[in-house]
Design a protein around this nucleic acid. Structure first.
Lengths: 351, 351
DNA sequence: GGTGTTTTGAGGTGCGCAACTCATTTTGAC
DNA sequence: GTCAAAATGAGTTGCGCACCTCAAAACACC
């Protein structure tokens, strides 16, 4: 009746016997230590394969003694999204402690490539793993590669540096996120035609640029009735975003959709609210933004915002830790588990 | 610069010294063994608290020796969603093996309360943890409580039995899922008025009933222009769903939305397709269903289906295992991590 | 054959805890 | 103060592995 997954109560001793070698040799093979003939390596590996042997992770962890140190290199300054990541790491304290893992936050100006690179270089040798919110820049890329060469496991968080030799990227596909935003606005305006506004932090940021790219892609191919206006660069600041958007709303009477690519949401909402007061009766425009924060949550509940594209920060924080741990232990990564999904959050499925 | 989470390189020995007792007494307190004065218990617990001591999970795991056995009690018969859960458990094989966990599938007719209850009773004593797709019925409730009394950790999967003493529920809030479906259809029809059809497996199933409840809630309060037709009970079968829906579509020319609550998607799609062929030019109706399967994925890509409400089966499978393990170890559960979110999946954020 | 080098075996130690035994001390009842 | 029961101390063993040492064996080269 019961189909059983996972047997394996074998130990290294069994593997040694199977392969006709001693424990010491199995140990050498398992840890890539030198001084084993290629042919012997093969025999040992075959024995492991044949029995689908997995070293007991608890025993391995206990035996190695020293704790593991991970560093999270994150933007300094107030950023709700990053603060959430930090908060979720805090919630894991007991979990981390029970595994003798230490996680240290390293705040940095991640927007300055040389500062970021220097911060990364400074970590070399001292950490088993590093998670970094990275800018895609040659200097940063080199610093990441140096860390990898020094033996650290490196994951990029939220923003990737694909050209580096980082072991993993924990974050969403931003082009797909932009496409999703586009499809949502296109569908939710419900056949009306008109103009669509975009407010972004800066088109120089890789994630913002990618989102805008995906957004435009969908708009162009599927919603020809909607006309996308030039991107407003609000630098993720509330005041600036508000002013720019208010101006734009004044100039165009037929704006039916708004995509807020980054932060500055407070300012965007204010500009929208002012318009609603001045021009009551007009059809509400469709407003789609990113991330579920206290503010966007309120806006969704109030009906000001129609949908938020969200990358679960808790999931990102935990995934980063789990991936670093799996890499450090040499375990396989559960790709499906660690993949960050693009969540569409509307009022009724607010988490 | 670096704010560190998690110190604790303490051991039980340190705690014993702190509390002024011996290792044996600490062990007794830690495992609720008898023969310790209340006052001593308090002193030991205080020492643990004071140092925020966490036993080293690897050492504990290693020392206890025997492996843990978990059982997954799931519906027998072909059910894509359940097959996916099983497949994801298979992908965890290495992970499970490294932790010396065994997971056994116990297929059962979960729709027959007495059969299900008997299956559960049969597990008593043999398993450390049980995950069960449960029917909410007094007999099942009693069986779950018996399992709990026998010392097993029990989680309900997908479908809950809130009145039982199960330790945890791994699944979504189905009322919220129904609300989300309602809000989506309401928004996506874009101001048109007309009728909305519902196809469900059976209103006797708790999850289906809850979804319909949430759906009607939203429709009634927010989309007065839409008229919800009586629920079609397709029993999750393709043929029956197709026939019922085809009839309904024939009777009503002004159906603008369709909510498919359960399975039988193939039949639903067929009925829709037939209508599209016969009556070209008519506005496409908005079709929202549940779960991302090979079929719904195709329908989404083809534009036949507009959105799928999804509860990530991989996440559910892994969460169930992690929760059972944490419960068995006496570790705290990362609630935020184990919570199953209601995903809205449209073509552009297909996972 | 002798030499040096590489490969392998054998074994030990300790990680932190669970689980147990047995002796000793403390406590409470009378 | 006596005695039994309860509480505690002291200690052992072993889980499976990482990491280390030292000696023995196999091998390569001349």
């Amino acid at each position: 009746m019961a189909e059983t997954l996972t047997p394996s109560a074998l130990t290294l001793k069994d593997i040694a016997r199977e392969a006709g070698v001693s424990l010491a040799t199995v140990d050498r093979v398992l840890h890539n230590r030198p001084g084993v003939r290629p042919d012997t390596v093969r025999r040992v590996k075959e024995a492991i394969e044949r029995n689908s042997f997995q070293p007991h992770v608890a025993a391995a962890e206990l035996a190695r003694g020293r704790a593991r140190r991970f560093a999270f290199v994150m933007p300094s300054g107030p950023n709700p999204f990053m603060q959430q990541i930090e908060a979720y790491l805090g919630e894991m304290a007991a979990w981390l402690s029970a595994r003798r893992l230490s996680v240290e936050m390293v705040p940095t100006d991640v927007f300055d490539p040389s500062v970021l690179a220097a911060s990364l270089e400074a970590l070399s040798g001292a950490y088993d793993g590093v998670a970094v919110v990275a800018l895609d820049h040659p200097g940063v890329r080199a610093a990441i590669n140096d860390l990898v060469d020094a033996g650290a496991k490196v994951v990029t968080l939220v923003s990737d540096v694909p050209s580096s030799r980082r072991h993993h990227y924990v974050g969403i596909d931003n082009i797909a996120a932009g496409r999703t935003a586009g499809a949502l606005i296109g569908r939710l305006v419900g056949g009306r035609s008109g103009k669509v506004a975009i407010v972004a932090g800066s088109q120089g940021l890789r994630d913002h640029a990618e989102r805008i790219f995906g957004f435009n892609q969908v708009m162009a191919s599927e919603f020809p009735g909607l006309d996308v206006l030039p991107v407003l660069e609000g630098r993720d600041e509330d005041d600036r975003s508000e002013q720019l958007l208010a101006q734009l709303l004044g100039r165009h009477a037929d704006i039916v959709g708004l995509y807020n690519v980054g932060a500055g949401t407070q300012g965007v909402a204010k500009a929208l609210n002012d318009r609603a007061l001045n021009e009551a009766g007009r059809d509400k425009l469709v407003f789609v933004g990113h991330d579920v924060t206290a503010l966007t949550r309120r806006l969704l509940l109030q009906g000001v915002m129609d949908a938020a594209i969200s990358q679960n920060p808790g999931h990102e924080a935990r995934a980063a830790v789990r991936v670093l741990l799996a890499l450090a232990r040499g375990e396989p990564i559960l790709r499906e588990q660690e993949k960050i999904r693009i969540d569409i959050v509307m009022r009724d499925n607010l988490p």
